[in-house]
Computed example of a mutant assay.
Amino acid sequence: MAYDVSASAAPPLVSVLIPAFNHERFVRRCLDSVLEDPYPAKELIIIDDGSTDRTGALIADWVATHCMDIPIEYVQRGNRGIAATLNELAARANGEFLRPGASDDYLLPGGLDAQVRYLQEHPGKGAVIGDSIVVDQDDRKLHDSGMCDLHGADKSLYCSDDGIRRAVIRQWAVGGPVALIRKSALDTVDRWSEGLRIEDWDLFLRLAARDALGFIDVGVCAYRMHDANLSRTRHLETRLGNLAESRHIALRRAGLFDEPYRTLLRAQAHYIDAKIAFLQRRPGPLLAHVAAYLSLVLAARTRPPPPTPHAGLP
């Protein structure tokens, strides 16, 4: 899909941000996809976050080959973690819009165009998410929709601000890096919270609290499932750590929301506690948290959403 320059004589610059770490098998496909997307006004910023395999060398070779094809900035440094790396990438970006990626996933052609158009048509939105396809380590397609096939999402919820708030709070169904973010939005809601492993949910809760998050039903990236990310989801201590962090985020961000969403976030904290108790095989706390969760969900249903929507970003 070619960008229609008649709709905008000077298409806005998109900064594609790639935090790379130990993805020597996949990083070339990720970088190639940035060139393959036909959107004309883009730059590529890459940080190798302390890789211990050949990721850094492969990126350097790719940059040397393609440095005349697209503006590129490449940084190699020690490991600081995903949130710190995303914040540094955003600080280095020149674009009006930021497209965070991942070095094991890749962009789908046309996704940038569709997301830019959405944000141009919705100036009150700070970010827009799309869907993903799901592929394996050999690029074989596993699913047509990361949202529906991996997470069982109801996409109809994402068609309204109320629905997006409820979806982000109760079932964050984003598979892969599928967001385009207005750079000015990060000045309003802060950037990625460093030290967190669930940094994306935290950011999008803050955006949803301002009605600043939109959705398009377009596949904008390929989310890759492979041995490394599957092993993280199966490891008990990792799962417990992620759940504990999610509970902390839910309680920390509840104050940003009006009712009934504040109560829904408190309910979600109990739901997460129930998952923790289940994994730890503690039936008493499990039943107590399930009861608290159901009670709060019922209470939230008696509190209608505010009649006047938030104005979004200035």
Rank of each mutant, 00 (worst) to 15 (best):
G110M: 10
D61M: 01
D144S: 09
G146Q: 03
C30S: 05
S103C: 14
H66D: 10
S51H: 00
K141E: 11
D105L: 02
R140F: 08
D136K: 13
L107N: 05
V75E: 04
D69F: 08
G50D: 05
I45F: 05
K42D: 04
G78A: 01
T85L: 01
L119V: 15
K141D: 03
R77G: 11
N87Y: 00
P123V: 00
A102R: 00
W62M: 03
E88A: 07
L119M: 11
P40Y: 09
L112G: 12
L112V: 15
E73T: 15
L44H: 02
S103P: 08
K141P: 02
H143D: 08
A83E: 05
L17T: 11
V128C: 08
L119W: 14
K141I: 10
G146W: 13
R140S: 04
R29Q: 09
I133T: 14
M68Y: 10
D139R: 01
N22R: 03
T65F: 09
I59K: 09
I46F: 10
G81W: 07
Y118K: 07
R54L: 13
G50H: 01
I45V: 13
V116I: 15
G81L: 14
G56E: 11
T85V: 04
D61T: 00
A64P: 01
A93L: 13
V63G: 01
L150H: 04
E96Q: 07
D37R: 02
D113M: 03
T55S: 15
L112K: 13
H23S: 14
A84W: 02
T65W: 14
Q137D: 15
D136P: 06
L119C: 11
I47K: 04
T65G: 11
K125P: 00
A102Y: 06
Y39G: 02
V75C: 09
R28C: 10
D69C: 06
D69K: 11
E24P: 01
P100F: 09
H23M: 12
D105G: 04
A64K: 12
R80Q: 13
T52D: 11
M68I: 00
G124W: 01
A64L: 02
C30T: 08
D149I: 02
G110A: 09
L31H: 00
V135D: 05
I46K: 14
G56T: 09
V75S: 06
M147A: 14
Q137A: 14
P19E: 02
G95C: 12
D48Q: 06
N22Y: 02
P71K: 12
R92Q: 03
R80N: 07
A91H: 12
V116M: 09
E24C: 01
C148H: 04
L108I: 15
Q76G: 06
G146H: 07
D48P: 03
L119I: 07
S145Y: 05
R99G: 02
S51F: 08
A102W: 02
I45H: 12
E43H: 15
L17K: 11
Q120I: 11
Q120A: 15
D139H: 03
I18T: 12
R77W: 05
G110S: 14
E36P: 00
R80G: 03
A84G: 06
G126E: 03
G56Q: 06
I47Y: 00
